[in-house]
Design a protein around this nucleic acid. Sequence first.
DNA 1: CTATTTCGTAATAAACGAAGTTACATGAAG
DNA 2: CTTCATGTAACTTCGTTTATTACGAAATAG
Lengths: 151, 151
Amino acid sequence: MKRDSRLSSVLHALLHMAERGEPLTSEHLATCIGTNPVVVRRTMGLLRNVGLVQSARGHAGGWSLAIDLKAVTLRQLHEALGEPAVFAIGNRNENPHCLVEQSVNAVMDEAFAEAEALLLDRFGAITLADLSAEFSRRHMAHLKERNKNAS
Amino acid sequence: MKRDSRLSSVLHALLHMAERGEPLTSEHLATCIGTNPVVVRRTMGLLRNVGLVQSARGHAGGWSLAIDLKAVTLRQLHEALGEPAVFAIGNRNENPHCLVEQSVNAVMDEAFAEAEALLLDRFGAITLADLSAEFSRRHMAHLKERNKNAS
DNA sequence: CTATTTCGTAATAAACGAAGTTACATGAAG
DNA sequence: CTTCATGTAACTTCGTTTATTACGAAATAG
């Protein structure tokens, strides 16, 4: 199955936008992410729909953050993307006539529901600021490593 | 996204096999599940590889259980199927050069790992016997309902 | 005002993986 | 030796995500 990687992509884009204070073009973001400008516009457009980012056309236009990093959770982003299906495995038939299959579905659905609830809960607890902090840590470690090698 | 429904399918098949004591043909199972005999053989073959079922050719041949219902968990079946990817969402790039993307991946992977662990844990706690019991409950309720309507 | 930049969006193609299908070989039982 | 049933390879179909092409709309520089 092909995985939906849009959440990953938008996080990548949003952090780059946070690093640089100025608006970034779809072209620029597409290069960062390794995709196509149109894909960026399509995906970022969903975030704009819920007020997380702004876009401007023409010279010096592009995409910029509309909110504070601390105020956005991964869960909000997941929702902004239309809450795509979380699981790549699932029931064969959602409304089966067969009682055996109904039983299988009922038991599996319960397990899936719990796992999904946990995932969304974790997503709800992670903000863009957390990711930014994680990046800073790694950036520091990276610089330190370079210094050590250079000396 | 197209979900992998093989776990659901084999559960359905295994329970039907448990209901009837005799070997069931791929043809028969395919009809139960609503698929193709070759697909059944392909999938059940994976279970045979780990000793969960047996197959026999020729007259009176077909598929039969090789173990006790209480001794098989959903997790074992998931493993027998090759541990297919659980999530339909994921990182865009598994080994990124960009530090920003590495940070995103690290944080997301943690959340996914926790949710996957929970799901597999639940799968490990559910046996075929549990599913069979769930079916019995539903079967009883179904018969009761029919009686009520008939009277 | 016109050229350039950049977003907005529709339409279409490409890429990928699961499931379905066809075809035929192999082996067991009557 | 015929029939039934699995074993398996090869190929097709189908659904979904991502990429690409094409062009329109708005903002700004000169």
